[in-house]
Design a protein around this nucleic acid. Sequence first.
DNA 1: AGTCGCCTGGTA
DNA 2: TACCAGGCGACT
Length: 271
Amino acid sequence: MPELPEVETIKRDLTKLIVDKKILDIKTDSVKQVQPSLGVVKKAVMGTTIKKIGRRAKLLQVFLSNGKILVVHLKLTGRLLVRDKNDPQDDWQRVLITLSGGKELRFCDLRKFGWIKLLDARSWTLEAEKFGPEPFSKEFTIICLKKIFSKTRRAIKIVLMDQNKIAGIGNIYASEALFLAKIDPRKSAKQLGNQAIEQLKKAIIKVLKAGIKYRGASDHDYLDALGQKGSYQDHFLVYGREGKKCFDCKGKVAKIKLSGRGTYFCPKCQK
DNA sequence: AGTCGCCTGGTA
DNA sequence: TACCAGGCGACT
């Protein structure tokens, strides 16, 4: 799925494209993806105006003029596309939101893992509390990371991807950050020294910033709100580069499974 | 801490 | 035909 940089890109796009638009209708053929139910959501959103778009971890928030929030999780293959209502259908359209000005917000999702959920401000706060710090926030400090890592023996890559520990990092950016920091993804989080943690923090910020700069990684399904690909996949150092030369040592990039997820790293450089 | 399930499609 | 895919919650 879209990870932090991809969701952030969509957030910025949507801010330009749909803020101040009015919601005229919502429909779906994929009822499980609209929560609590299409009926409830429809009743709440019809006639409201979109005030603001937000992001927390990999979740997008659409703030409505009645105080409610539409929260969207794109999971692995979700897209949020802004189209003219007469534009040709997109692949895998699941939820269609008709907007004022002849526009349409299309939630498309091949694998149907994603969802749109209606929340009030209070339940949003409860849901958002469980997430770890945002990498671009002031809470994201060495001290904070040290605290998080010291509490678990799990592999550092698994911890990086745990949204309750740190928000927004997924499989791609975890692999890339660990390569930059020269840390073996299998290494126990607990065993990272101060220097390694400092390197890792810098690396996380660096790869996420690069991801945003290149408008996300379109390795598989990701598209921005106008249906355009990002280009961060052209800058991957290890992800998807199994058997190819490491850019540092000219050894070979390895692929292993870590908790069932494809994990790419350079066994020579990453210790 | 690791595996399965939710879904559909692309590729070897 | 089998396996793989950027996530994550439930289960063991």
